[in-house]
Design a protein around this nucleic acid. Structure first.
Lengths: 222, 222
DNA sequence: GCCAAAATTAATCGCATGTTTAATGAAGAT
DNA sequence: ATCTTCATTAAACATGCGATTAATTTTGGC
């Protein structure tokens, strides 16, 4: 006996007719992407994701074995292309000059505004259960690559000879990443322009500061 | 009738004898400080704080009108001295050179390791209900002060003439703050030394990068 | 046509949270 | 001495969470 027989709106219990495609699974992944990446894993409930996807909360367990499985599945799909691009950037032996690297890195952040938020929540905040994996698979893989690039540039004479490569990676990340993770704040308290043109100026400014500093004198370095 | 009459350990119901001092209140504030500052507001439960303080959870509501009130009370006491010091740093007209400023700022972060975590959780993460107040009272007050200092240095000819003051504040914060908020990660993936000596080297390195950049060539700036 | 497998729903389970209540007993004022 | 106020406890309340279950319906192979 159908619960709401006079209205075709409410779905009946049981397997729905037709549609052999994995539509519910896709809806869940889409809803998970838009909600988890915007608000974070903790802040979004299973019921919210299910409601946004327009499906029953139990489907999360059915398809993904729970909230955490859904998050993982969605994340892997979302970060794969970004990881690929970053890895290509750092892997190519040519075009590995620091300026090009920083420009590409910052353009990736600008083109994927959810990444800085993800980094703040899942890498820099010691809360989540994903932090360990994130640090291992992300930072643990790219930071040494970056340090290698710096080391090569120092040995090639294109960077100052007595730079500590590890500390330089930290400075580079601070200069290139911090502007994006702080953007929601700096737009308000400093009037930073988050438009495409503004970001372009930010990138140019950052590259200049990183390469030549901000002092005006002829002090020379080291 | 006392519940546990044969053991003096369990506290009886009712107002305890003696002790007119606000000892329960203090215990709660202490427990709140050590837990909230280490793990964040969301991650710590009222019951946890009460258990750590060795008091009944209802006392949180009695003295502070709830978890949020306790957090606020504890925070105000904790950040007051830091805010005072930062304000003094940025207010004094003398000694406002950029190098001294960055050194002092980074020393404050090194001496109060809970501040970077607090910034990540309450300022850079758009979750909590405190974010708005934090941005207004913290970033909103210090960022313009910092920009003023930069502007004065530019006009005084001690910094490059065509620097954008707002973008320069972002770079400065990225260089000076990011190393601390990323310390738990960089110690693991880059082997950054978090000891006092290591931090001293980090500060020197950062000042040098900020003032003179990392390029080796004689390109000159601007 | 039958029957196992797949897909979906409503309902609920167990648990943790922040909060509130009612009872209780000491302190302090009159 | 009495009465109000203060400080405290144990218990429970309401809510929201992730997860699970049982029922139900369709599909697809035989």
């Amino acid at each position: 006996m159908t619960r709401v027989s006079r209205s075709g709106v409410a779905r009946r219990v049981g397997r729905p007719p037709g549609s052999a495609d994995a539509q519910v699974r896709e809806s869940l992944l889409n809803a998970a992407r838009s909600l988890f990446l915007r608000y974070g894993f903790r802040a979004v409930s299973s019921r919210q994701v299910a409601a946004t996807a327009g499906v029953n909360p139990a489907m999360i367990h059915y398809y993904f074995d729970g909230k955490e499985g859904l998050y993982r599945a969605m994340l892997e799909a979302a970060i794969a292309p970004v990881v690929g691009r970053l890895q290509a950037m750092l892997g190519e032996p040519k075009s590995a000059d620091v300026e090009g690297l920083v420009r590409s890195y910052m353009q990736v952040m600008a083109a994927n505004p959810w990444i800085p938020g993800l980094i703040v929540r899942e890498v820099l905040t010691p809360d989540g259960s994903f932090r360990q994996a994130f640090v291992r698979d992300f930072a643990g893989r790219f930071a040494p690559l970056l340090r290698n690039v710096i080391g090569r540039e120092v040995e090639g004479g294109r960077l100052q000879a007595d730079l500590d490569p590890s500390l330089t990676v930290v400075s580079l990340l601070g200069l290139a990443l911090f502007p994006f993770i702080s953007l929601p704040v700096t737009t308000r308290v400093l009037g930073i322009d988050a438009s495409e043109a503004g970001i372009e100026k930010l990138i140019g400014h950052t590259v200049r500061v990183l390469l030549h500093g901000i002092a005006s004198g002829e002090h020379g370095h080291a």
